[in-house]
């Protein structure tokens, strides 16, 4: 499956590279778009020294960590959110006649390597924040874990979004509001949001484990909402549960398609 994935992705990359000018422009634009995204954070901190009790570098740390997970998934998994388009155009059938899983084929469909510009931006921001905050290994070991956790959570969200589209073929924007909204939510410390919203993204949809809970550990801070310290380490477990749910939903979605054909 991994081999099939990279083979498909590589073929699309070559196809994109066939138009080098367009390719270079897209990478550049992706980077500019990402730069303006982080500029918003900088503009906010041009007007204040702390946001909900967090400093500029701390916010950039949370922003970069979530951004890295999100952009990796945006590059490698997000193509799955075209399920409803494929159903409407009748092109989903062509995936189902091939001897490979539908998930692998859909996540690589029109794989767009130019999104890598955004991954780079997130990595740069995260790297800067780690250096500026002087985070050492004694707490920094959590950073790779949290990025990996974030990748699994976002990948699961996209898969769920794709699975939902098997039923809601007419509302793809509902599911993209859900995935991109999750990214937007995790860009800032959850301390800026209302308590009930944070409870929701901790216990229902585990977005708090993308960067907030493990990030609090790395930054050595207490949770303003007062959750116990053990919560900082629950990320991988939460991600795994969500991934299992997503896998089940995806199977169910395919099954639904095969019993309705539309």
């Amino acid at each position: 499956m991994v081999r099939t994935y990279f083979l498909l992705a590589w073929t699309w990359t070559r196809a994109a590279a066939a138009y080098p000018a367009s390719f270079a422009l897209m990478v550049l634009l992706g980077f500019v778009a990402a730069a303006l995204d982080v500029a918003v954070v900088l503009i906010i901190f041009a007007n204040t020294t702390a946001l909900a009790g967090f400093s500029r570098e701390e916010v950039l740390f949370l922003y970069g960590a979530a951004g890295l997970s999100f952009t990796l998934c945006d590059t490698f998994v997000s193509n799955i959110d075209r399920v409803s388009q494929h159903i409407k155009a009748g092109t989903l059938d062509t995936f189902l006649i091939r001897p490979a899983g539908a998930w692998v084929q859909l996540t690589t469909d029109r794989f767009n390597p130019t999104r890598a510009g955004r991954v780079l931006q997130a990595a740069v921001v995260l790297g800067y924040a780690i250096a500026a905050l002087g985070i050492g290994w004694e707490r920094g070991w959590m950073i790779p874990v949290m990025v990996a956790t974030g990748v699994v959570i976002f990948a699961a969200l996209w898969t769920l979004a794709g699975a939902v589209q098997f039923v809601l073929t007419d509302a793809p924007e509902v599911t993209s509001a859900f995935t991109y909204g999750s990214n937007q939510l995790t860009q800032y410390p959850l301390a800026v949001y209302a308590r009930d919203l944070v409870k929701g993204v901790t216990y229902v949809l585990p977005l708090a484990f993308v960067n907030w809970q493990p990030g609090l550990y790395v930054l050595d801070r207490d949770d303003p909402f007062g959750t116990p310290g053990a919560m900082r380490f629950l990320g991988p477990a939460a991600a795994l549960v969500l991934a299992l749910l997503a896998a089940l939903a995806w199977r169910q979605g395919i099954r639904h398609y095969r019993s309705t054909g539309s």
Binding site: T48, A50, L51, G181, Q184, Y188, A191, V192, Y193, A194
Partner: peptide
Amino acid sequence: MFGVLRAYVLIALWQA
């Protein structure tokens, strides 16, 4: 969704 999240960030900023 977008608007609600943005509102919280702006509120946090204007509170500061």
